[in-house]
Amino acid sequence: MKRTHIILLVFIAISIGLLVSFMGNLSTYETIASARQKEGKNVTIIARLDNSKPMEYNPVKDPNYLSFYILDTLGSQARVVYHYGKPYDMEKAERVVLKGKMNGDVFEISQKDGILIKCPSKYKDDPEMAKKNLNKTQ
C-alpha cells in the first residue's frame, strides 16, 4: 500500500470521526411539547408568535430583556425569554425559528442569534406581500 493511500485513509477516518462526534452536538427541530420533555437540552423550535398575548419589551427599564409568547402548529404554547434587544420587525414575523432550551415553563434563549425571524420579505420579495401591497385600499 502506498503512503499516499495510507494518508488518505487516515484523513478520511479523521473526518468521519469528527463528523460522527459532532453529530452528538446537533440538536433537532422540536415541537413545544417535545421540547418540554427535554427540559434543559438545547433544541430548535419553529413556531409563530402568539399575538393575543403581550410582547414585553421596555428598553428604558432594560434593553436586554424581551419576552413573548409562541404557538406551534400543534397548538401548544410557551413563553419565551430572550436576553438581547428586540429584533426589528419582530411583530411582523410570520414564523420564528428559536434556538434555546426549556427552563421550567419558559423557553430561554441565551445566544444572540437564537432568534431567526422569517419575515418573508426580509431579503427577497414575497409575492404574497406584493399582492397585499397591490390590493391595499387607499
Binding site: D62, P63, N64, H83, Y84, S110, Q111
Partner: peptide, 17 residues
C-alpha cells in the same frame, strides 16, 4: 439598567445593549 439575574450557564453576558 437594573441588574438582572441571568442564567449563569449562558456563555455570554447578555446585557449588551
Amino acid at each position: 439598567g437594573i441588574n438582572l439575574p441571568f442564567d449563569p450557564k449562558t456563555k455570554e453576558n447578555p446585557l449588551e445593549n
